[in-house]
Amino acid sequence: MSSSSAGNVTRLPNRDTALKALYDDVSAKHMFPFWATSTDVEHDEVKQLLATPKAVPYLWRCAEDIEPILNRAVELVTMDDSERRSLVLVNPGLAPKRATVSTMYTAYRLNDANEIMPPHRHSPSAIRFGLKGKGNFTGVDGENIVFGPGDMVLTPNDTWHNHGTVGNEQALNLSVLDLPLVETLNAIHFEHDYQEMENGKLVSKKQQAERFSPDYSQRIYGYGGLLPRFASKQARGAGLSSPMFVYRWEMMRELLDRHRDNDGDAHDGLLVEYIDPTTGQPVFKTITFFVQMLQPGQKTLPVKTTSSLLVSPFEGQGHSIVNGQKFDWSQFDTLAIPGGSWFEHVNTSSKDPLFLFIASDEPTLKKLALYKKWGKSASGEITQIFD
Rank of each mutant, 00 (worst) to 15 (best):
V9F: 03
V9E: 01
V9C: 01
L12I: 10
P13F: 09
K20A: 03
K20R: 09
A21T: 13
Y23I: 14
D25A: 15
H30F: 00
F34V: 10
D40R: 11
K47Q: 14
A51W: 05
K54S: 06
A55D: 02
Y58P: 01
A63S: 11
A63H: 10
L70W: 00
L76M: 13
V77H: 05
S82K: 00
S86W: 03
S86L: 12
L87Y: 02
R98F: 04
V101S: 07
M104W: 04
Y108H: 02
Y108Q: 00
Y108W: 02
I127K: 03
L131A: 07
G133W: 03
G133Y: 01
N136R: 04
V140I: 09
G142L: 04
E143K: 10
E143W: 05
N144H: 14
M152P: 01
V153F: 04
L154W: 00
N157K: 06
D158N: 15
N162H: 15
N162I: 05
H163Q: 00
G167W: 01
A171R: 01
L172G: 04
L174Q: 04
D178N: 15
P180D: 06
P180Q: 07
E183N: 14
H192K: 06
Y194N: 11
E196S: 01
M197L: 15
G200N: 06
G200Q: 07
E210C: 11
S213I: 11
D215M: 00
I220W: 02
I220K: 03
Y223M: 13
G225W: 02
L226F: 08
L226D: 09
A231W: 12
A231Q: 12
R236A: 13
R236E: 09
G237R: 07
A238K: 02
F245C: 08
Y247V: 01
E250P: 07
E250K: 15
D257M: 14
R260P: 07
N262R: 09
D265Y: 04
D265N: 13
Y274G: 01
I275W: 00
T278E: 14
G280F: 04
Q281I: 08
P282R: 05
V283S: 03
K285N: 11
Q292A: 07
G297L: 08
L310D: 05
G318C: 13
G318P: 13
G318F: 11
H319Y: 15
S320D: 09
K326R: 15
F327W: 06
D333V: 11
A336L: 08
W342F: 13
W342H: 12
F343Y: 15
H345I: 10
N347S: 01
S349G: 13
S350M: 13
S350F: 08
P353T: 06
L354P: 07
F355I: 07
F355E: 02
A359C: 11
A359H: 06
L365C: 02
K366G: 05
K367A: 14
K376T: 11
S379W: 09
F386M: 12
